[in-house]
């Protein structure tokens, strides 16, 4: 589902690479934690997969798409295969929860019929079927993150990327969210979560890829967080 071959990324005006010689294979249906201290390259890793940036050298394949040789106007089609969740939720403040989720379908040109059917379904999956009419400012942080997960999933992408999804949430809410990720993974979606959250990683016992200074220092099948903060 995700394949990286000898990927190295230098940013302009930096002598050290943000990522160096990364080789990763992720199969369909896997659940992966990407861990490491700040500045270790987790966000660069995710931005490469989204083709927000291009690697300096190496090859990247996402959902069978050759990311390096993708024409710029085809980038939207790559992104339709990847649902994205961020630390700061990135919800549109002037749209209701329902509208935020529907927006992801509308920009893909789905019909009103499909939207009316799928939005309540996905809100139910994240447990917010009764909150759809509220604006993001009227929802708690955990609820906002659930809405952003609903938006990421409503198009049924094969891959879900989450960059520090629990960074702004309290521990109890974080665990609830992890249970939600697990449920989504069990339904067949490949899930990759970049995180700092020790309890979450230790309690889930999933594959862990640990980054340090832009290099993979550990790739364990049933790993733990493994750092002292």
């Amino acid at each position: 589902m995700i394949k990286m071959r000898n990927v190295t990324k230098y940013y302009p005006n930096h002598s050290e690479p943000a990522l160096a010689e990364i080789n990763v294979d992720v199969e369909k249906g896997e659940f992966i934690f990407l861990v490491g201290p700040s500045g270790s390259g987790k966000t660069t890793f995710i931005r490469l997969l989204l083709r927000e940036i291009l690697p300096t050298t190496g090859e990247i394949y996402v959902a069978g798409i050759d990311v390096l040789h993708l024409r710029p106007w085809k980038v939207p089609y790559l992104r339709r295969n990847i649902g994205c969740v961020f630390q700061d939720f990135k919800l549109l403040p002037n749209k209701t929860a329902e509208e935020n989720v529907a927006f992801a379908l509308e920009v893909l040109g789905r019909s009103q019929h499909v939207i009316r059917e799928q939005v309540p379904e996905i809100l139910k999956l994240v447990g917010l079927e009764s909150q759809g009419h509220k604006f993001p400012s009227e929802l708690s942080g955990g609820e906002q993150q659930r809405i952003s997960i609903a938006r990421a999933l409503v198009n049924h992408p094969p891959i879900l990327l989450a960059d520090e999804p629990t960074g702004n949430l309290d521990p109890a809410t974080s665990l609830e969210l992890m249970a939600l990720f697990d449920r989504i993974n069990k339904m067949g979606t490949t899930v990759l979560v970049a995180t700092h959250n020790r309890e979450m990683v230790d309690s889930m016992r999933k594959r862990v890829i640990a980054l340090e200074n832009g290099r993979i220092v550990r790739d364990q099948v049933r790993g733990v967080y493994g750092y002292e903060d």
Binding site: K90, V107, L108
Partner: peptide
């Protein structure tokens, strides 16, 4: 700009934005 960046993230084509 948030709106635009979200549109791009969910895979909206440029002319759609």
């Amino acid at each position: 700009r948030n709106e635009v960046s979200i549109m791009r993230l969910v895979g909206a084509s440029n002319w759609f934005i």
